[in-house]
Design a protein around this nucleic acid. Structure first.
Lengths: 197, 197
DNA sequence: TTAGACTTCATACGTATGTATGAATATTGT
DNA sequence: ACAATATTCATACATACGTATGAAGTCTAA
């Protein structure tokens, strides 16, 4: 029952999940093509190079993340409620490889893939807008929106990237739905306390 | 004017700074030995393998981090003040490659180097003890110390690992001492608000 | 049906990697 | 001083990598 999806899509799928789990350097084109049930030459043929495939992956998972961000940011509710929605989404969305890939890339000194800075700028900017909105109506306390936005997103992004921290280190079994809910609730509460005036 | 420090130390130095900047996979033994002004075989001879050198590096930078943690945790001041001290230290200590190396390693699905889990457990445990202490005397609000500890350390660790987030993305020039101080102050304030009862 | 383009495939190429080898050189203990 | 040990060094080795090549196969349009 081999899939009949187009080869480029299969390559993107395989690459996204491998890059998210292992990182760019640790994944070989042979792993990707074999997982995608494609030929070794398929990456070169359809994308040009491994790096070009990586950028395409970033574009795709980044677009997905940005979509969810925009959807919630443009939704209903107070600014604070929408920020809480974004945080919850980042922590809970089932398939969301973007945060791990982005943060890992940000952690190096190598030049950033072009799409990546723009993506993060846009997402953080979305949060900053919500913060400004809340400051305008008095529901969010005064302070530099950029600093607030970083503070707010640091927890969910880091926990999303390194889910072993709760699981293996802090002894929080967030695989269990109830405990995961408790974790999300805690993060949301924490963030609310730091923002609400 | 070549340094006369012992070769193993030079290898550890070179490896620590390269691993911290680029990550394990992206650094070759040839880069390390050449930077350490040692022969290509030096890593095999003194450590056995590249991976063993990596573990030694983790041990060393981890010990440094743990020392600073313990020093501040065992110092004077209220529990909250000591937590603030740890956070400030992680954000400001000039040479602290541990957070970046640790987080990057935690971000993969590969098995963790043995020293690493223990190290993180110990450090997070230190923070948890402070939180319990503060809860006992009523200065820190009630709640799961493990969740609190993760929330508290997420910001400084992430900002330490990906200093490009403030610099390149949020537009916060934290290279400038004043702005860096503002960033630290903001993080400390945020954390205080989430902990203080 | 058949020409032309598109896609797959096996294989080859050059390079970089981590490690092994064994001779040369330093260092140490007596 | 000398024997034994410890370290350095150049080089070799096997393997894995990303990419290139060109033949084989498949699909599309007339």
């Amino acid at each position: 029952m081999k899939s009949n999806r187009p080869v480029p899509d299969r390559l993107l799928d395989a690459a996204a999940s491998l890059f998210a789990r292992e990182g760019y350097d640790a994944v070989s084109v042979r792993q990707i093509t074999s997982r995608a049930k494609a030929n070794l030459g398929a990456i070169t043929y359809h994308f040009g190079s491994k790096e070009a495939l990586f950028h395409a992956v970033i574009d795709r998972v980044g677009a997905h993340l940005a979509e969810r961000f925009a959807e919630i940011a443009g939704g209903k509710g107070t600014p604070l409620e929408r920020i809480r929605g974004i945080v919850t989404m980042v922590l809970s969305e089932p398939n969301l490889p973007a945060p791990a890939m982005i943060l890992r890339e940000l952690a190096t000194d190598r030049p950033l893939p072009p799409p990546l800075v723009a993506l993060m700028r846009r997402n953080l900017g979305e949060v900053m807008s919500l913060i400004r909105e809340g400051q305008a109506d008095g529901s969010i306390r005064a302070g530099d929106p950029a600093l607030f936005a970083m503070s707010v997103m640091a927890q969910p992004f880091l926990l999303r990237m390194a889910s072993r921290i709760p699981r293996d280190i802090a002894g929080v079994m967030h695989d269990d739905p109830d405990t995961h809910r408790a974790l999300v609730k805690h993060v949301v509460t924490t963030i609310t306390r730091s923002l609400a005036s």
